[in-house]
């Protein structure tokens, strides 16, 4: 099972990590996590996940800054990224999509929707 699809989750809330990890693991994903903004870009480079789930409201750094850094890297330009945020205004969504998010998901989300979105992202990457 070494060719399981890998997801990197950058999120600081332990219970949310727990929920996402459970839902994706059950679907056969390999889930790695990183709990803060510091070192997040390096973690992405190290692990080169198939899909990245990025929380915006990290305690030390804005997820948007991380997103911008990632998209500035040639190697990560096509990495499928889902942005999670507890701030649901449409302004936020536009901003996330503009900076380079592929999917914008508002907390709280339904597990099925989240899973579906991650699958879609991985599929798009495979067919691209």
């Amino acid at each position: 099972m070494t060719d399981r699809q890998r997801v990197l989750l950058i999120e600081d809330e332990p219970n949310i990590i727990e929920a996402i990890r459970f839902v994706l693991s059950r679907d056969g994903w390999q889930v790695a996590t990183h709990p803060e903004g510091r070192g997040a870009v390096e973690a992405v480079r190290d692990r080169m996940p198939d899909v990245l789930i990025l929380d915006v409201m990290l305690p030390d750094r804005s997820g948007y800054d991380i997103l911008a850094d990632l998209r500035a890297d040639e190697a990560l330009r096509d990495l499928p990224i889902m942005v999670l945020t507890a701030r649901g205004q449409s302004k936020e969504r536009e901003m996330a999509l503009e900076i380079g998010a592929d999917v914008f998901m508002t907390k709280p989300f339904s597990n099925a929707e989240m899973l579906e979105a991650v699958r879609a992202l991985a599929h798009r990457r495979d067919t691209a």
Binding site: E13, I16, A19, F22, R87, Q89, K107, P108, F109, N111
Partner: peptide, 24 residues
């Protein structure tokens, strides 16, 4: 308000996810 929203949605996210898991 943005901060409140965030502070309310964060626990709600966990509650929703886990209650869905329990139900499904």
């Amino acid at each position: 308000l943005s901060q409140i929203s965030h502070e309310l949605r964060t626990p709600m996210t966990s509650i929703r996810s886990f209650s869905e898991l329990l139900r499904d």
